[in-house]
Nucleic acid binder design. Sequence first.
DNA 1: CGTAGCCTTGACCGACGTCAATGATGGTGG
DNA 2: CCACCATCATTGACGTCGGTCAAGGCTACG
Lengths: 261, 261
Amino acid sequence: MGWRIPQALKERSKLSSENTAVDLFRINGISSTELKLTKSEVLYYEGDSANRIYIVRRGLCFTFRHHEDGRRQIVDLSFPGDLVGLEALTQDYYVSGFTALTASELVAYPVDEFTSQCYIVPELSRILVEYISREQAILTRRLVEVAHSSASQRIAHFLLELRARALVAGMQALALKQTSPGREDSEQDFCIRIPHAVIADTLGLSIVHVSRTLSKLREQGLIADMEDGMAIVDLPGLQKVADWEGLSPWFDKVEGRETPA
Amino acid sequence: MGWRIPQALKERSKLSSENTAVDLFRINGISSTELKLTKSEVLYYEGDSANRIYIVRRGLCFTFRHHEDGRRQIVDLSFPGDLVGLEALTQDYYVSGFTALTASELVAYPVDEFTSQCYIVPELSRILVEYISREQAILTRRLVEVAHSSASQRIAHFLLELRARALVAGMQALALKQTSPGREDSEQDFCIRIPHAVIADTLGLSIVHVSRTLSKLREQGLIADMEDGMAIVDLPGLQKVADWEGLSPWFDKVEGRETPA
DNA sequence: CGTAGCCTTGACCGACGTCAATGATGGTGG
DNA sequence: CCACCATCATTGACGTCGGTCAAGGCTACG
């Protein structure tokens, strides 16, 4: 029952598109509306009629659903550049709600204008498929994580994902600031400020346990409290705990035994 | 903190396409190859180079990934009519593996032929987006489920999902047969035969606990052992335990309180 | 008859949830 | 400037759901 090393796995997608979604929508004459959300403001709820698609320009938001017991599951965070509300393409009502974690700016596109174009313009189809696939990869990953990992692993992974996505989105830090200018990725790294409740609801843990687990990571010297949030102090160490493989969900180890059905 | 009743929620997708995927692919001249899988045969592993897309014609299969500790997570089951391996559209290597639960027949399409067409032919784009969205809905749902539900709820829900998807796919039962001809949905209903290990790996539970939980459901008179698998005896009862809302993930109750960030 | 899967059951234990009390912080209005 | 309150974080005590280990049974199959 050994580990089989697959071919080298590439980070980049086959379908890299040069234009951003925003550009594409503009080029194709889809009308846009700017809008702002204040912290904690809800853009739409589960069950609201779905008639718009959005792109986040600034700020940090998230998509959520509610369990019947009233508890909240955060399905995914949205960073600047992310597409939001794609459910509107295939459904009449949103299945998830969407709200702002920090004050945010979005652009809204009417979905009917969108659908009339999106299947005709190859570029748009492509960006859609690509984007939904990416979302799906993140979701799948999170599913595996929530189903099989310990609290420390989940949290470590979550912090790394936050960092990676924020960097991709061009944020130097998360609703916050960089610790000391000039540092890159050595001991003291990235600074994160986010309520424990958000971590808990994303990873399916209780707030209390998130607090305890963060304390443990702190004791282990992996993260530290800064004046404006927590910082990743030992990036390699945290990556080891989280079994980090990069933002893309590629595996660098694959089990090669016969798979019992 | 009351429940807000949203607008009536519809089951149907906005983008209902009359042609099946198989028809569409044929019409657009994409070359196809038939292939068979024996029980437990693996079609591809995580890390294999991704150059084909498949459609399941007969049998029951599933997509899996491995956790670094060697444990298996089943990401989704595939029923006849389901598209498989769409990761090939956006990535060079499969991120998940795919294998047959029962002897199965598939059709394979080369992905390069596919990509040259799929963004140009609106019908194809549409079916893609629609399909991936559907997959994503199931995934999201499962995430919420795994994160927040008890073992009985997860299992009850899983059984109902199996039943619903099998019926959609036109299977009268699951690798099996209908119990007594003439019954519809009264006391004795649908018959399911599936290894406990599959349930466990799908829902993130141990085999032992799956066994225990099924026993409990049996004691409660919700399911029963038949000579060729288990049958759902009390459908409404099971739906109540699972908090079943139908195959589509629409909520019929939405919490309307302000959402704390 | 022996072996290999798969299911079941019991004993035990640990990770995580719940409840509750206490602090730290920061914004707001008087 | 301070009192007040809301939000968020922390910590302890305690309970439980579900994992692990191990043994035993059932069926299928060579």
